[in-house]
């Protein structure tokens, strides 16, 4: 089981959309995938055609003393997703995102049930709270705010930067891309996901961009990501 954590450098970078698209791209490649939404905004489920009013999720289950994975939903035989859920309690328990808890929880899963576990982490603008994962992807926009936040960040082994909503016609974005290639050469993924209206349309259709428009630029970028992950872990195996 390979665990991939995806986290926005700040809010609104499109990390959940990438998780949903990546899950679909991996399923299309014949892989078995579980997506877990660890973001209290509870939006990942909307990419999987989930009912807005359905409040079930792992956070409620944990709060109610139930097993955390009882609220998982299946989307075909290869893709399962676990929403965060709506909680009656307004305050999120402080330990609910504790990395060690999740390491333990993931161990409870049947090793053969999924090859990939994708975690949609809440955006972090502070120094990285490192989450136990085989690969951590930080999603950034090529803008000065992300550049400033990245300057404070410590990168560890298996941490990678992925540029989303990249507009090649923008001078500033191109300059930042060039600068990041020099500054973060060890962790910047060698392609960007291009700015593409289909990314937003997909959510409006309650689907992942890979399922909504598999031929669009953004879906192509996400397929590159899936192929890179598959190649990386085949090499490791």
């Amino acid at each position: 089981m390979i665990c991939v954590a995806v986290q926005g450098c700040r809010g609104g970078t499109g990390a959940s959309s990438i998780v949903a698209g990546l899950a679909q791209a991996l399923v299309n490649a014949g892989e078995r995938v579980l997506c877990i939404d660890l973001d209290p905004h509870n939006l990942l489920r909307l990419h999987f055609n989930h009912d807005w009013r359905d409040g079930h999720g792992w956070a409620n289950a944990v709060n109610n003393g139930q097993t955390w994975h009882t609220a998982a939903f299946a989307l075909g035989s290869h893709l399962h997703f676990l929403p965060y859920g709506h909680s009656d309690i307004d305050v999120t328990p402080t330990n609910i995102l504790h990395g060690d808890d999740w390491r333990q929880r993931l161990k409870e899963l049947d090793e053969d049930a999924y090859r990939w576990v994708l975690l949609d982490l809440p955006a972090s603008s502070c120094a990285q709270d490192h989450f136990p994962a085989d690969v951590t992807l930080t999603v950034v926009h090529a803008d000065p705010a992300c550049h400033a936040l990245l300057a404070k960040r410590q990168f560890q082994e298996n941490d990678y930067l992925l540029i989303n909503h990249f507009a090649p016609s923008s001078l500033l974005q191109n300059d930042l891309y060039t600068l990041w290639q020099a500054q973060y050469s060890d962790c910047l993924l060698p392609w960007a996901i291009h700015q593409d209206e289909a990314m937003f349309e997909a959510l409006a259709h309650k689907r992942s961009v890979t399922a909504y428009r598999s031929d669009c630029l953004a879906a192509q970028g996400i397929r590159n990501l899936a192929a890179w992950l598959l190649a990386r872990h085949e090499e490791a195996a």
Binding site: P144, H147, A151, L171, D175, L176, T178, L179, Q183, S185
Partner: peptide
């Protein structure tokens, strides 16, 4: 070529130059 481009970036965008200088690593 790359060096010239990075120099131009530093001149064009003061914040980028400032942040780059403030980072001990990797520069």
């Amino acid at each position: 070529a790359q060096l010239d481009r990075l120099k131009a970036i530093g001149t064009r965008w003061p914040l980028l130059a400032e942040l780059t200088l403030s980072q001990r690593e990797p520069f």
